[in-house]
Design a protein around this nucleic acid. Structure first.
Lengths: 192, 192, 192, 192
DNA sequence: TATGAATGAGGCTTCATTCAT
DNA sequence: AATGAATGAAGCCTCATTCAT
């Protein structure tokens, strides 16, 4: 194995841990996820986890970062579309497409925010806030490009609707919540 | 102390524990709340808690029940209003009035749903679903009384908006989310 | 078992833990002593230790307190002697009598001071300092009663000699260090 | 890099590790010092430490050796003085000159002895004993040269006083202990 | 020799739950 | 019913040591 391969492998391991952390925390919640759970999911010996992340909170932060990357990937792709309205509609489509995930575990970011939001003076709570703000900012930019007044309020409405429908779909174990609300949001975007 | 007083005191203790469980779990989340936390908040010796609730999950169920009682209290009062539209608007008003709580700890039911929704095959998850359904049913009844088509979808929209705005207000630590979205919902209800 | 007996038993357990902590820490040093070591020595289940002491440092503080009690017991008895010179000579005698302990593990307070003195801004370091000061204060009082000038300096000399001879006896594994130095100190006290 | 340069560099690394071990262990104590601490202080990668020292105990032994070298350096220089009394007085002077170090971390050898002396059947304990004996032997030689009877006992007294005053200075965080006791020892040496 | 990475044993601590009165 | 105390199963984290190259 060459040096660069080793570095790559090491980077890969770190990334595996980040992804495993994101996945496991989404499925089980922060507090019900143990380091051992994440280690197992990443196929890494428990003791070795601490070589990459000093504390469990660091791993949770990494999970947040993973979601941030996901977000940027998605919005980055949507940015290729010429029409901001189309971008928003595709965003909603994506949410609906993931409805089964929402039914089982809720929105990854939203449930993380709900759990971490209870911590006071916490870096993790702040980081979750940042992540949410990032999504809001992107959505707001689309509304602004559409020439809408109060694009920030519209962004809160749209993202809030997504959070609400994910939470209800999860609580009711009903994917229809996602499809129906998704359709409503799409219609609403078209009506603007 | 007479026998009936003792029974009453015991009932009071149980109720104190329920209320303390609801309050503490709302503030800290299920997993970060210990039995000792609840016992302290209820001013009940730890060992005694188990006389009233066999397990921690039972206490969480009791917290859910406490929220259910709250819900019934509120909807019961609203039912006194003659106009269903007014009832819904007052409901939204109540949400906005509690914005500081939402900012600090989110919606009690919603955050509980987010945390418990991760559990599979869990009575607690089911119970949370029931609680959410109860609210939805009441809201749906109002929309039906208003002669709206698809009152169930409208209920999901309204309650989802509440869940979403609570989550965002909490994540962003911003009460304005509640006031602005509240105003929008009120206007929407007026427009129906 | 009556209530008072139970309380007594509980107190006894706490005291057993304190004594075990003092003994074990003296024998093994702070860092090489585990909570499990102390629990075993006190015949208490590990988990139960935390009912009495919140942290390991608390247990070490308790060990210090145990030594403080020992010190007060000893000086209290010596205070019954009418002559302060005699008191000091008996103190030295006591040190020499314990020479085998010194050879094996050094002076309990001194070795604790050596180990904890490395911690900066530490309550334990402060507590050790207090304990040392207590002994110094008592010795100083005797020298003052003897009409000696600079009784505080003499106290430092005497206690310092004790610490030094204990350390050397331990390092050299030689009880003679204690007897010879003890004799010298006795002669010195007589010469004042 | 030539072969000899490499060997020299390697030797330098080894020496750097020894010195770092001595310094770090003196500051933090044996058990609170990690291999990583020493590696960092020596600016050597952790994994590389084991090329020079097989175990942590070997590193501690190296620290002891470092102190032995220091001792020999000091006594070697003092041996240049013609008068043994002067040599001893200068030794004491050196101790007092280092009072701030004593206040912060105690005597390097003494605190090591206190910590390692608790180990039974330990090579490290033996090695510490040897180091102490070396100092005693040198001091004893001076007293012998001065024609004092029982030079070994006098050596124990002097070195013991040093250990005692270092320990007290450290425990009380008071450099005055060093200056006052140093002055007393100097006067004592003059009086012999 | 040099080095980042890996490994696993063990220590501290928490906490739901049970026990003895 | 009431209560302090007891119990033990985890969970998080550290660290000496080893490995692979």
């Amino acid at each position: 194995m060459t040096n660069s391969q080793r570095v790559q492998a090491a980077g890969a391991k770190r990334r595996r841990l980040m992804s495993a952390a994101a996945r496991t925390v989404h499925r089980q919640g922060v507090e019900r996820t143990t380091i051992a759970d994440i280690a197992r999911a990443a196929d890494v010996p428990v003791g070795n986890v601490y070589y990459y992340f000093k504390t469990k909170d660091d791993l949770v932060a990494a999970a947040l970062d993973e979601h941030r990357q996901q977000l940027e990937l998605i919005t980055g792709e949507l940015d290729d579309l010429p029409d901001p309205r189309e971008r928003l509609k595709r965003l909603v489509e994506g949410w609906v497409a993931q409805r089964d995930m929402a039914v089982r575990h809720g929105c990854p970011t939203g449930t993380l925010a709900a759990e971490l939001g209870k911590r006071e003076e916490s870096e993790l709570a702040d980081a979750t806030g940042d992540l949410v703000r990032r999504l809001l900012a992107w959505v707001e930019a689309q509304f602004r490009e559409l020439g809408q007044p109060e694009p920030d309020a519209l962004a809160v409405t749209l993202v809030g609707a997504y959070q609400g429908m994910s939470l209800l779909a999860n609580a009711l174990r009903d994917p229809q919540v996602m499809t129906r609300e998704g359709a409503r949001l799409t219609a609403w975007l078209d009506s603007l």
